[in-house]
Simulated assay, not measured.
Amino acid sequence: MSEARSYPRRVNTEAGEIEFHMMTRADEAAVLDFAKALPTHDLLFLPRNISQPKVLSAWVNEIERGDIVSLLALKDSAVVGCGTLVRDQHSWSPHVGEIRMVVSLDVRGIGVGRALSQEIFALALGAGLDKLTVQMTVDQRAAIALFESLGFKAEALLRDHVRDADGQTHDIVVLGHKVAQVRARMEAYGLPAAVTPS
């Protein structure tokens, strides 16, 4: 996947300055610490439990193969958020990307999640994707509201779709966004550089 944006990039939020950079194998230990500090329920945003070292190592392998792009949010050199753009070039949906995102409890509600989701959205535009999806449990209302504010709309409800560590099942809501429409509007406004893959 290619993107028109360059990293590291710094953004001011209510939480202070946040630095975004592309995740590499060198970040593995810091991301593991971040994941282990997350509430278990938050890990249900992701299809795999990244608080397990072998799962995290497999994730880094996917990054190195170019199958996914993961962006880290850092505050004072500590990982406070991670956003991933997943795209399966060999599926029937190579034009669709999935956003997977988690943010530390201590920086929620103060702009970090919004800034991270906007960065991932920009990467999707640069990658030439037509559609984005995101999924989460139905009780994660703040996250749902955040993505709806970015133009995502509910498309599906998957009942009892994930099972947590205690064996309890949870419903998943799938939200979608037609990225191609955003790209077309930006091009109509004369902003082609913002949406052209590098």
Rank of each mutant, 00 (worst) to 15 (best):
S2E: 05
R5K: 08
Y7I: 03
P8W: 07
R10V: 02
V11W: 09
N12D: 09
E17N: 06
E17Y: 09
E19P: 07
F20V: 03
D27Q: 12
D27W: 10
D27M: 05
E28N: 05
A29F: 07
A30D: 15
L32G: 04
L32E: 01
L32N: 06
D33V: 02
A37W: 04
L38G: 07
N49T: 00
V55S: 08
L56H: 00
A58M: 12
W59H: 12
N61M: 11
E62M: 13
I63N: 13
E64I: 14
D67N: 15
L71M: 13
L72I: 05
L74V: 12
L74G: 07
L74I: 11
L74C: 12
L74Y: 12
A78Y: 09
Q89D: 14
Q89T: 14
W92H: 13
S93H: 11
P94Q: 13
E98Y: 03
R100K: 13
M101R: 04
M101H: 11
V102N: 03
L105Q: 12
R108P: 07
R108A: 01
G109L: 09
I110E: 09
I110A: 06
S117P: 12
S117F: 09
E119T: 07
E119A: 15
L125C: 15
G128D: 14
G128R: 14
L129Q: 12
D130L: 14
L132A: 01
L132F: 05
T133P: 05
T133Y: 04
Q135P: 08
Q135C: 10
M136N: 00
T137Y: 07
T137A: 09
V138P: 11
D139E: 05
R141E: 14
A142V: 11
A143H: 03
I144N: 06
I144P: 09
F147S: 10
G151C: 11
F152K: 06
L157N: 06
H170V: 07
H170P: 02
D171P: 01
D171I: 02
Q181E: 15
R183F: 12
A184L: 13
T196L: 09
S198A: 15
